[in-house]
Amino acid sequence: MLTRHKLLRMTDEPTLSVEDTLAALRAVGEATRLRLIALLAESELTVKDATAILGQSQPRISRHLKLLAEADLIQRFPEGSWVYYRLADGPEGELARGLVERISREDPVLAADQERFRAIRKAKAEEAASYFAARALTWDRERSLHVSEDDVETAMQSALGDTPFQSFLDLGTGTGRLLEVFSEQYSSALGIDASHDMLAVARANLAKSKLGNAQVRHGDVYALNVPPRSFDVVAIHQVLHFLDEPARALAEAARALRPGGRLMIIDFAPHELEFLRDNHAHRRLGFAHDQMERWLEALELDLEQVTDLVPGDDTENNLTVTLWLARDRRIVTDWPARDTSREVA
């Protein structure tokens, strides 16, 4: 049976009962927890981050975070042996954000917290940049084989058009580049990747771009930990050729689409560059149009557009990049009109 609290969460407006409002205020009504809320309003943090910034023990910080989570003010996202925390997206989270906005930025305690937080974020950005640089030569070699990334991104933007949409899911997000490319169009976004190192790069990039409405999570494209029918646009950019079972990943992507939602796939056309298997971990040497169309048809997705980005004849490039855009054929009005984009697990 749904409680009044849960019923309130299902309305369009973020509202709370008097009881829940008092519970949230009691949870945040302590100096350390208020400092934590102020930090989490800026960015997600781990217990290790919070311990370094606030100068308190790990058990103490963990206890405060537990109390805030129990009051639904924050959310926790396990990632391997780490757990990331961020402000909740529901009405309690909005209440917390409102409180933080009314605190003076000149408060000496919070100002010192912010200074330490910036130092930690800078160190993480430098670490992420070092990781990226160590792999840059390998990636640059692969990129040199096809049209420029600018051309690919232009094709993606042209395919989706400039109409805003609510929610965006980027599978195999890597450095989080697509979260930046489409940031002007979505209201909320989630990037998923299996590499913790890549996620560190993506988090640094999102922080640098100040994209507070986008987040990244560790996850498996074969078993997405997101609610079904929860995203307007799902992208799979240069991911399928690394997979043994690309059709299985496509099925998971389709499950995440809202009725009428769009799935955008970018990958290589069939080729014969065998060295990409040995040196770049490619499992598939591209995908033919008819093969992709069969997979999409089996998932009840209508293929709306296919675009081949062919390298020019006067270059040494060898790979053609193909963009497929498909739409979920279910009728939009068949699905309840409520925002589930913020319910990502």
Rank of each mutant, 00 (worst) to 15 (best):
I192K: 10
R342I: 05
L273K: 05
S144H: 08
G312E: 07
P259R: 07
V332M: 15
T173D: 15
S81H: 07
L169V: 11
P14R: 09
D107Y: 12
L276D: 01
F132Y: 13
Q166R: 15
R121H: 05
R60N: 00
E44I: 01
L301W: 11
D313A: 04
W324A: 08
T11V: 14
S187A: 15
R229Y: 03
L190D: 09
H289D: 12
L22D: 02
R33C: 07
P336T: 14
D162E: 12
I265Y: 03
D313S: 08
A202P: 00
L39C: 02
T320E: 05
A133T: 15
W139V: 15
R329D: 12
H289R: 11
R141Q: 11
L285E: 09
T333A: 15
Q305L: 09
Q238N: 14
H5P: 06
L160C: 08
P336D: 14
I74Q: 00
A125M: 12
I192A: 10
E101P: 10
E42H: 05
A134I: 10
R33V: 00
V216N: 09
D302F: 06
V239K: 04
E106C: 12
L99Q: 01
R217Q: 15
V306W: 01
E297D: 10
R116F: 05
R105I: 04
P78T: 09
M10L: 12
G212H: 02
K208L: 06
W295H: 06
F132T: 04
H271Q: 01
S81A: 06
D150K: 07
F77R: 10
A129L: 08
F77S: 02
P336L: 06
V216A: 13
G93N: 11
T32C: 02
H289E: 05
H64E: 09
L45Q: 02
A251V: 05
P164I: 04
A155V: 08
D72C: 00
L68G: 05
R86Y: 00
R4G: 14
D328H: 15
A345Q: 12
R203I: 07
R277P: 00
L303G: 00
G219Q: 09
A214H: 06
V321S: 04
E149M: 06
T320W: 01
T154G: 07
F165Q: 12
H5V: 08
E153W: 07
I331S: 09
G55P: 05
V332Q: 14
H241W: 13
D339P: 10
P227G: 04
E300K: 01
D278H: 08
A249W: 01
G98L: 05
A23S: 12
A247D: 13
V216M: 14
S183M: 05
A111D: 04
D334L: 14
A200F: 13
E316G: 15
F77Q: 03
